[in-house]
Design a protein around this nucleic acid. Structure first.
Lengths: 218, 218
DNA sequence: CCAGACGCTTGATTTTGCTCAACAACCGAG
DNA sequence: CTCGGTTGTTGAGCAAAATCAAGCGTCTGG
């Protein structure tokens, strides 16, 4: 959280980001409907969040990696509307929300930062809506790969070579596609020389080629 | 904004929600990319918000009626990521955001309310993602009608009879469908005796029937 | 280290919603 | 009131992705 706080303010903040929680691969951090009292930041590993439908259908709303904040949906009704699961053995940091509210009344820079974080989540979701509502399967998967690549890069990992933490089914759910479609597209991208995809291992050979896939189909 | 403020606090608040703006049908309240400095609440009429894609595709992210708040996406980068257009002659109320931040540092109840509003928007968008990602055309349109119906009801209008403010194309964009599909579905719903749809006029004859359309296709 | 479950791939077929196209109804400006 | 543009309806054919199905690879937990 680098955001122009004084050393003193930072020390204050430190006092409340102490509690951590470990979650094993597949385990749940919180369920939809459970009471909300804290936000979480990813310290290690990665997680997915998903909203559930009565009939069992689920929509993955995001994959979250190091440094990302989850649980913002819980503020509105004091109950989480989505569930969060670890994609691999992970660790999160708890941020008790009422304490965060107290602090942010006293520290304007923090207050503004909290507002920005909430708003960023809105923007991120708008982006996903654009993807789900207007893109064809090929474009969706290309966007997905480029987004992942960019996020790995910004965390100091390779932008062109990485190991997926999620299954084809989870990717499909996130993109509004079936797992078979995702699988076929990985194969097609590979045949086209854009990527190498061997199960979870992905190597991007031609990022610009992927970028060009995104656009009107002429 | 009924949220447990004291009379004095309410008076303070009043002092900054004075400025209003009229927007004629089809006019733009703000464009994607324009600088953000205030939120807006709908006082009269209705608006749509939409995100744009470089190639011209647009995704309608919401239809907004009396009392609803728009512009929350602008907080994160001080620039709007979506554009807002009036669906009919409308009027909005300006809420200068930096003043709102000042007030909410002094009034904890307001601070919490602001957080809840931001979070509600996240939840609303998650709901849209579920709709866009997992539902079939028929389910999407049924959900859309039931949602509209519910919102009219809560504003004291008829839940079963109303006039759409948006075109088939805008509905389609919101639901991730083409306008022809929307039109055909209205006709099918009418044949099935679920609704009467004559252009913009809609009468819901069998709300439960619509509800039953939403669910796994067995 | 092995067995079994889970995840992935690929093919054949079907379904859904899109595209293209023509026309009808409506609305608002003059 | 009428004309012209916009919005809505409907049809035929088509393309994209879903479904159904079979088989294989590979992790992983005992």
């Amino acid at each position: 959280m680098p955001m122009g706080l004084t050393a003193d303010e930072l020390r204050q903040l430190d006092s409340f980001v102490d509690e951590r929680r470990r979650i094993k691969r597949g385990e749940r951090l919180y369920a939809a409907g459970s009471t909300f009292d804290a936000l979480f930041t990813v310290r290690l590993g990665s997680l997915k969040t998903a909203v559930l439908f009565e009939d069992g259908r689920e929509q993955v709303t995001g994959f979250h990696m190091l440094g990302e904040l989850i649980g913002l949906d819980g503020i509105s009704t004091e109950a989480h509307t989505c569930s969060a699961h670890a994609l691999e053995d992970s660790e999160v940091c708890l941020l008790p929300f009422s304490r965060l509210e107290d602090f942010s009344r006293r520290i304007p820079a923090l207050q503004h930062h909290v507002h920005r974080l909430l708003s960023s989540e809105i923007v991120r979701e708008q982006h996903n809506m654009l993807l789900l509502g207007t893109m064809r399967a090929e474009e969706k998967l290309a966007s997905f790969l480029l987004d992942l690549s960019d996020r790995y890069l910004r965390r100091g990992y390779s932008a062109s070579e990485f190991v997926l933490r999620m299954t084809r089914e989870e990717i499909g759910s996130f993109l509004g596609l079936k797992l078979e479609t995702v699988s076929r597209l990985f194969s097609r991208f590979q045949e086209a020389g854009l990527i190498i995809a061997q199960q979870k291992y992905i190597k991007i050979l031609d990022a610009n080629g992927l970028r060009q896939l995104i656009g009107p189909p002429d």
